[in-house]
Design a protein around this nucleic acid. Structure first.
Length: 416
RNA sequence: GGAGAGGUGUCCGAGUGGCCUAAGGAGCACGAUUGGAAAUCGUGUGUGCCGUUAAAAAGCGGCACCAAGGGUUCAAAUCCCUUCCUCUCCGCCA
């Protein structure tokens, strides 16, 4: 939602905020906007007078005539401009502060309750009681929560030996499929990004408490590679035939998990640092919803290759992220903890991020349009690791390694 | 971290206070010429905001934009300050 949208459809804007359960005053924004436009008109008019006077002075000077009277007038007008500009700056600051908190529009297909739209695979059956990943991981010495706590405190994990290798195998497997089969361009971006980048993707200002901020330098640690990938083309223009652009990146992700005390405290369902492969697309506006379905298929393919049962949820308006117009979540079944785990979130942000990051496309008719930007995880690993360990566990305590990962593990078939 | 050189439109590139409304070139678009093309000639060529229009687009009018922000001045691409980025050299470092 932007200012123009609110100006033209104030009632629709209010309805969207209501569905998203966001609390922003549309009327206040409209009032500030009206005031702003009045001041701009006034400023431009005074500026025009001042400019004309300045030109007259230049001519008089050139003809070596006396200009002292006009000088006095020009000075006064100049001061008046400055006064008006200060007033305007104040209004614009207030307005910008409000606009920062405006979420994206909602796509018409988004429901009011989360809806499961697809399922794949069978939940594994066991003739023993399946263990949770923390027990399996410690027993096989592939996960080490105690040592991680020594290094960083609670909510961290340390992968060890074949565990570290399995994590690395997952990263490489996903990157290989995306780059070789689906033609995403692989990026290895900085994990520290400037504040502006977070604002552009919509992570700021709402998620400020969720992120780690550097004390001495103006950086935040990225909570997802969506931040650097979206900002790859900040302030750039595409030619129409350059689109769509597909990018993928593996990065560690850092999250404070400030509001989740007491939730998922055991194991590594919710930790402060985790590995993720991210997908981002830049598309023409008319293609973005087809591209969303393609991205979803790309992610589902990974789940199917790993033979992990999953369900696809279409998120409701109130569950979607601030920047998203439509989101699918992919949830993997984890047999040990006995729940569905969100392992991917795939969103079409339409032009929300493109507006903030100023990314446009030059159309064939020479007009400029904001591109649409999509992102999705493909995949978030600690939780995939959990699903593999818990679903592939055997009675003897070993884990079968999914076939597609074996080439990445030196042909190893099981961890015991 | 220290010293120096830079950052101008889609691109190259000129421009040290006022006819800068940014020279010149390339590119691109349209037109002329041609049987068709090349070459040549002509014309045009950015973005944002505000207004005008019932609305949208176009058009028209106004304002702004020469890395970003601030300052000096009646007047700033041009002078001063701060910041960012690029390049070269030195220092430090994996």
């Amino acid at each position: 939602m932007n200012l123009k949208f609110i100006r033209e459809h104030p009632d629709l804007a209010k309805k969207i905020l209501d569905r998203r359960k966001e609390n922003v005053s549309i009327d206040e924004i409209l009032m500030l906007d009206t005031k702003r436009r009045q001041i701009i008109q006034m400023r431009d008019q005074v500026r025009m007078q001042h400019k004309q006077l300045t030109e007259k002075i230049a001519i008089l000077k050139r003809e070596s005539k006396d200009e002292s009277e006009l000088l006095q007038q020009a000075k006064q007008l100049g001061q008046r401009v400055k006064e008006i500009e200060n007033e305007l700056a104040q209004i614009e600051r207030q307005l910008a502060e409000k606009l920062k908190f405006l979420p994206n529009v909602i796509h018409e297909s988004v429901p009011d309750n989360d809806t499961v739209v697809a399922c794949w695979g069978e939940k594994p059956q066991f003739d023993f009681t399946p263990l949770a990943h923390w027990d399996i991981g410690e027993a096989l010495q592939i996960l080490d929560f105690k040592t991680a706590a020594k290094l960083a405190g609670s909510r961290f994990v340390m992968f060890k030996g074949l565990g570290a290798q399995l994590e690395r195998a997952l990263i490489n497997f996903c990157l290989d499929i995306h780059t070789k089969k689906h033609h995403y361009v692989e990026i290895s971006p900085p994990s520290l990004n400037l504040e502006e980048c977070f604002y552009n993707t919509g992570a700021l200002p709402k998620q400020a408490d969720e992120m780690y901020k550097c004390a001495q330098d103006p950086f935040y640690l990225i909570p997802t590679a969506e931040v650097p990938l979206v900002n790859l083309h900040q302030n750039e223009q595409f030619y129409e035939d350059e689109l769509p652009k597909y990018y993928t990146a593996y990065t560690p992700c850092f999250r404070r998990e400030a509001g989740s005390y007491g939730k998922d405290v055991r194991g590594m369902i919710r930790i402060h640092q985790f590995d993720k492969v991210e997908l981002v697309k830049f598309t023409k506006p008319e293609d973005s919803y087809d591209e969303l379905e393609k991205m979803r298929a790309d992610v589902e393919e990974l789940m199917q290759l790993l033979k992990l049962p999953y369900q696809v949820k279409l998120l409701s308006a109130s569950e979607m992220a601030f920047q998203s117009a439509k989101t699918y979540d992919i949830e993997a079944w984890a047999a040990g903890v006995g729940t569905w785990l969100e392992v991917s979130s795939i969103s079409n942000c339409e032009d929300f991020q493109a507006r903030r990051a100023n990314i446009r496309v030059r159309r064939k008719d020479n007009s400029l349009q904001y591109v649409h930007i999509l992102n999705g995880s493909g995949l978030a690993f600690p939780r995939i690791f959990i699903a593999i360990v818990e679903n592939y566990q055997q009675k003897d305590g070993s884990i079968i390694i999914p076939e597609v990962l074996r080439p990445y593990m030196g042909g190893l078939e099981k961890i015991s």
